[in-house]
Design a binder for these strands. Structure first.
Lengths: 201, 201
DNA sequence: TCCCTGATGATGACGGTGCTTACATCCCCA
DNA sequence: TGGGGATGTAAGCACCGTCATCATCAGGGA
């Protein structure tokens, strides 16, 4: 019944718009994302989306929100429970992979200052944040619970963006994965050494 | 003589375009950056820039290239010679500060996959990369020279982007600086502990 | 069974922006 | 004084976001 064969009223244009926007992002990149294009893609007139979204920005926020939720699920699926550095590395791999597999979506998610008034987006961001915090807490028990998650998130986020921008040459997806794992381990190995130096001096 | 009072031929429209673009970025954000707007800002007809840039993208690449060079200089100025973790932290502060002070420019620099064919951009990126590598080499002598710079750059880059996107609440510039320093030290302190755990298990 | 109502979508239009090109014009420099 | 590069003018073309208005359809009450 809820199967939309879209005879007349289309069934669920609200969701269809988000889906269409996602498809456009995958195909045409961020530049192709306009309200009109979304409407065309959904097989609907240019004005129809206004029944469901106040303006273009609201639609894009919805897309970004879905992106955040999907990212959170993607991470959780990668490592349901994390205990050590290898788990952390694998979560980083998942994060970067998500970015590389959905480059335009990822850019939309982080394209502009987060609108604090947009309830959906704020909450979706919080979901990611809490997941990261949880992982850090279990991997680094007893560490600074406040700032360390920031550091880890920043690290992984930076890896994602550098790969996205082609600043690191990794041709195949596997190469990307390997580079991410290597980066994680290199960072934590070197930092151990640095701490030692620091203590020694 | 080279002082452009711009009577007729404008003197140096090529440079003026980049300057105008920079100003627009500071004022209107990335959305206001169009060839026409640049031309208007430079006090010139919409078609004039085409004498100096093949198309819009080429102009934007020039802006991004200048951004990279400026960033490299900014970093080098922050810590002419770096030896320890505190130096690294201060360089990170400079990087993030650059991003926060020129948000739109920073976004333009990293907005799209780096065009490998654009000589200027490739070389400018390389400048930043080599600077980071040099710092890492002196701060972490004997560490993996290949992948560790990647890790460090990613970490700092991620910090910059998260601050840019307002994902970390830091109201004043000083608060941002402090958070960055704290993030650097938290990361390297915790990681030392993690290594210990790793060895112990 | 039938019609009314409200939600949903279609149409068409307005005002604006942008990129790019073809052609005319200007002014510096040799 | 003339040539040639640098700029102006005008125009074509394609989008876009948004709105006011009209058409259509589903479902409920009579």
């Amino acid at each position: 019944m809820s199967q939309a064969s879209a005879p007349y009223h289309h069934g669920d244009l609200r969701a269809a718009c988000v889906r269409a926007a996602r498809e456009l992002l995958e195909e045409s990149g961020g530049s192709g994302l306009s309200l009109r294009a979304v409407a065309r893609r959904a097989g609907v007139s240019a004005a129809a989306p206004y029944r469901h979204y106040a303006d273009r920005e609201e639609l894009i926020s919805a897309v970004a929100g879905e992106g955040y939720r999907e990212l959170a699920g993607y991470l959780a699926a990668a490592r349901p429970s994390s205990r050590n550095l290898d788990d952390l590395a694998e979560i980083a791999v998942a994060y970067v992979r998500f970015a590389v597999e959905h480059p335009a979506l990822f850019r939309v998610m982080f394209a502009e200052p987060c609108d604090r008034d947009d309830e959906e987006r704020v909450q979706a961001t919080a979901t990611v944040w809490e997941y990261v915090t949880g992982v850090v807490r279990t991997v680094f028990p007893g560490a600074d619970t406040d700032t360390l998650p920031t550091s880890v998130w920043a690290f992984v986020h930076g890896l994602a963006f550098l790969h996205l921008d082609g600043k690191l040459d990794a041709d195949t997806p596997e190469a990307v994965d390997d580079r991410v794992r290597a980066a994680v381990h290199a960072l934590f190995a070197a930092s151990a050494q640095a701490s030692a130096e620091h203590v020694r001096s």
